[in-house]
Amino acid sequence: MATDEQKKLIVEALEKKTGKSKFYLKDFYTMIPDLKPRAIKNIVNEMVADGILEYWSSGSTTLIGLKGVGKQAGAEHED
């Protein structure tokens, strides 16, 4: 179960990023210090279920970003 503090750290880290809106799961590893990759994975997936983050998948790779941020949702009328 992710804490509000952990979720806040991830959202703040994503909001600071410029130029890209979607990130690999591994990019999230550094956003919360001292947590193992598996724990970060669980937090990220929980935040997707909460509607804070969303997946983007090419079919072979998955990227993750803040929900609604980026071009695709609007371009494909999926927002």
Partner: peptide
């Protein structure tokens, strides 16, 4: 085709 997306 534009491959990939946010759908699921």
């Amino acid at each position: 085709w534009k491959h990939g997306g946010i759908v699921g």
